[in-house]
Design a protein around this nucleic acid. Structure first.
Length: 322
DNA sequence: TCTCCTCGAGATCT
DNA sequence: CTCGAGGAGA
């Protein structure tokens, strides 16, 4: 599908991990599944002992990465029993300083998929900083978050539970590559469940915030001279050339701001096809009427047609020129 | 009525 | 971390 990129993440930047990517909910077909095994839960004190990734294209695995990692500290018996990874096994394995650059090269800039993705992403992020590597910026999809939303009645949403309930396997191995395989299958299974049951991300997240809140910029490099930059947009009616949320995406990618309704802060109201309200008195939507009133009252708001909107967004943004 | 915020409860990862 | 509840402000 077209480049819709709905993110349902935090609006505020994480002060401890300023370059960390966004937790997005998007049913992508091309992504990289990642998983790590560690000596414990705390990325400040614990270390990675195994790291794996699976490159997925069109839903299918096309490549995999897998490596044990020798930590500086001893692996506790608790972790050895949990994962099956012993001190002996990692004795001759490379350190994280060797493995992490290879891993980062493998995942590139792809969107990551993981179960409780924040755990893996935070761990990897912190070790990129520790080793003075470029910080992990990849956006990511959390299958934990997705399963909680799709199956709210389940007792829990551990990977083990997903694997069982989705009839993928009986047991989970608690090894990095094995968990990647399971997470891959779980994600594909949930995507299938959504389409098979005529669900969609919009319906699943219908009451979470508002549409405009769910759309985040795909870039942090804005053209400050764009007529869109820093301006507040609202939409009314159905656009002809694209879904409204795609148009909102264009706005925020150009550094603009989207609102759901017309307020005193709105600068532009984009008029789509309003056939549906022909029957309404004056043939104008409530948003259009409100915009006209605000304009009369002296507010900086202009109603524009869909075509004028695309002109404002500008060929320089869509065609990569300057 | 709508938007923005703060806060607390509840999970999941090894 | 995520999400929803409840309050402040318009």
């Amino acid at each position: 599908m077209a480049g819709i990129y709905i993110c349902f993440g935090n609006d505020y930047a994480n002060p401890n991990r300023p370059f960390k990517g966004t937790s997005m909910i998007e049913l992508l077909n091309t992504y990289t599944v990642v998983d790590i095994e560690t000596t414990g839960l705390d990325s400040h004190f614990d270390e990675i002992i195994e790291i794996a990734a699976i490159q997925v294209s069109n839903g299918q695995e096309i490549n995999r990465f897998n490596s044990l990692v020798k930590p500086n500290q001893e692996i506790s018996t608790f972790i050895s029993e949990l994962t099956g990874i012993t001190n002996e096994m990692v004795e001759n394995s490379p350190g994280i300083d060797v493995v992490l650059p290879q891993f980062l090269s493998f995942i590139g800039t792809s969107v990551l998929v993981a179960h409780n993705a924040n755990f893996d992403v935070n761990f990897i992020y912190d070790f990129t900083r520790l080793l003075d590597l470029p910080p992990l910026k990849n956006d990511f999809i959390d299958t934990l978050r997705l399963s909680r939303r799709i199956f709210p009645n389940w007792d829990n949403h551990k990977l083990q539970t997903l694997v069982n309930n989705l009839n993928i396997s009986d047991t989970v191995e608690h090894r990095a590559l094995s968990d990647c395989v399971n997470t891959h299958l779980c994600f594909e299974s949930m995507k299938g469940y959504i389409s098979a049951n005529n669900l969609s991300l919009d319906t699943l997240w219908e009451h979470y915030g508002t549409m405009s809140k769910r759309i985040h910029a795909q870039t942090d490099q804005f053209d400050l001279d764009s007529p869109v930059y820093g301006r507040v947009f609202a939409f009314t009616g159905t656009l002809e050339k694209m879904p409204r949320k795609d148009a909102m995406q264009l706005v925020v990618n150009a550094g603009g701001i989207c609102g759901d309704g017309v307020t005193q802060k709105t600068n532009f109201l984009v008029l789509g096809n309003n056939d549906y309200c022909k029957a309404i008195k004056g043939g104008k939507s409530s948003k259009q009427k409100k915009a006209e009133k605000l304009q009369i009252d002296g507010y900086d708001i202009t109603t524009i047609s869909e075509n004028v909107f695309y002109d404002m967004i500008g060929a320089e943004n869509l065609m990569g020129g300057d």
